[in-house]
Design a binder for these strands. Structure first.
Length: 434
RNA sequence: GCGAUCGUAGCUCAGUUGGUUAGAGCACCUGGUUGUGGUCCAGGGGGUCGCGGGUUCGAGUCCCGUCGGUCGCCCCA
């Protein structure tokens, strides 16, 4: 008979997280949350599933095969596990728009789902940070969401030599494309082609360029000139269109992260709803998938029933980020660790020690201390100190013969020093280093 | 959804042209007798060889299917 315990595996593309994995997750999420709060963002969250229509209205019915959708037994409403946060965010903003400050700065951390085959850097369930500024159409807002992402990566130990922010601008690219011969109506198709130009075989790329009457060589030359042009606008044909991009460059320099960023008009992002600025963050040698991606979506809040509202946001997932951090040796045990016990209490085995053992532990816990003890039967102090050290406790508290004088031994497990402490002062003694 | 490749203990892996009761290291547990550290010594638990079928006197080993992992494609939030 098949045992149920063996019959089940975790579903494809999901992760079982054991204590060391949780420690890594907390390390990353703390960096996300603390940094977002430091930058003045308020935390929100939404449901992990939404009405299916929330996603099809924006992306069309083709997206359905890429998400987990379902109906409750006997029901007739279609739901979907959320594949991204932006529609929820736009919905939530639209519902409260009249009461919200301008700009509104929100961040959110939670799980997201997609129904595709897992591969490197991409699972069916992952955790993502979303950081958005709604109601501010200035390049300063674009720079601000990039700054949060950069500060997070810096806090996690990465440098501008490890990761690069690539910034594009769809308006500028559209202008350049038109000047290179692409008809207005063909722009979306041309943007899509640019997004995947590196992944296409050469002959197919040139065939599709021909269809769009796009001269790629001319495009590259002009795009490079635009990207290189300075704030004074010395460049050529598209200098008026590039105004926003140059404003953004100034803002990035002003807040000290210009060195992390490269303008690259080849960056257009796959998603259809971005309106002008788009960005993605990659490992510097381009080794992994994007660590983060985002852009400006000035039409989306209105599409979800709110007032016309400009917005810009960036999303960062945990999977690629963890790969990059691991590769750079930034997830070592000294930086990623499980909660450290304040005390490991040891009974040396005498009757009075045994009597006071559990009440003392309970009392220390009520005082807010993280306290552990052995579940083994041995009272060998040597073995139990070994266990205390393995638990990475700061102090060992030994209940021994001194108990007759109302004292316990407190041993600092890092320094190796120990002293006797009146049992009534134990909690206070454990609250500070000896 | 499509393709390639892999699946032996909690982990990393051995396992001969198919041949008796499937092994090692690490980890875990116990002991080395009564109060001071991750070492050392001895011992122990733990595996339906992912699962299901087939070939064979005999399958961890060969064949088929299936479920997972990994890496690509599609797509990218």
């Amino acid at each position: 008979m098949a045992s149920a315990g063996r019959a089940f595996q975790s579903p494809k593309g999901t992760r079982d997280l054991y204590p060391p994995d949780i420690a890594v997750g907390r390390h990353i999420e703390s960096a996300w949350r603390d940094t977002a709060i430091n930058h003045g963002f308020d935390e929100i969250n939404g449901p992990t599933f939404e009405h299916l229509g929330l996603y099809t209205v924006k992306s069309g019915p083709g997206i359905v095969s890429e998400l987990f959708s379902f109906r409750r037994a006997g029901g007739d409403v279609d739901y979907a596990l959320r594949p991204e946060f932006t529609p929820t965010l736009a919905r939530m903003y639209a519902a409260q728009a009249a009461a919200l400050a301008r700009p509104t700065k929100w961040f959110s951390i939670g799980p997201f789902f997609r129904a595709e085959r897992p591969q490197r850097g991409r699972l069916r369930e992952h955790v993502q940070l979303n950081t958005d500024i709604i109601g501010d159409d200035s390049p300063r807002a674009d720079a601000e969401v990039v700054a949060v992402a950069v500060d997070i990566l810096r806090r996690l130990g990465l440098t501008e030599d490890d990761v690069r922010v690539r910034i594009g601008d769809r308006t500028v690219v559209g202008g350049v494309l038109k000047s290179c011969g692409v008809a207005e109506a063909k722009l979306p198709e041309a943007l899509e082609l640019l997004d995947k130009r590196d992944r296409l075989p050469a002959e197919e790329l040139s065939r599709r360029c021909e269809e769009l009457s796009l001269d790629l060589g001319a495009f590259d030359a002009e795009a490079e000139a635009e990207a290189a042009s300075d704030a004074l606008g010395s460049a050529g044909a598209s200098s008026a269109l590039g105004e926003r991009r140059r404003g953004l460059a100034e803002c990035l320099d002003e807040i000290g992260i210009g060195g992390w960023c490269d303008f690259n008009l080849g960056i257009v992002r796959g998603l259809a709803y971005y309106t002008s600025t788009v960005f993605e963050i990659h490992e510097a040698k381009g080794r992994e998938r994007a660590i983060a991606g985002g852009g400006r979506y000035d039409n989306l809040v209105e599409l979800f029933g709110g007032p016309p509202t400009p917005a810009v946001g960036i999303a960062m997932g945990d999977v690629v980020l963890e790969l990059v951090l691991k590769e750079r040796q930034l997830l070592t045990s000294d930086v990623v660790c499980q909660p450290r016990p304040d005390a490991f209490v040891i009974s040396a085995g005498k009757k009075d020690a045994q009597t006071r053992f559990r009440p003392l532990i309970a009392s220390l816990r009520r005082d807010g201390l993280h306290v552990r003890h052995s579940y083994r039967t041995t009272h060998s102090v040597g073995k139990l100190l070994g266990e205390a050290a393995r638990a990475r406790a700061r102090y060992a508290v030994i209940l021994g013969d001194e108990l007759a004088r109302g004292l316990v031994v407190v041993k600092d497990l890092d320094e190796g020093r120990q002293r006797e402490v009146p049992i009534g002062e134990l909690a206070a003694a454990l609250g500070r280093r000896t």
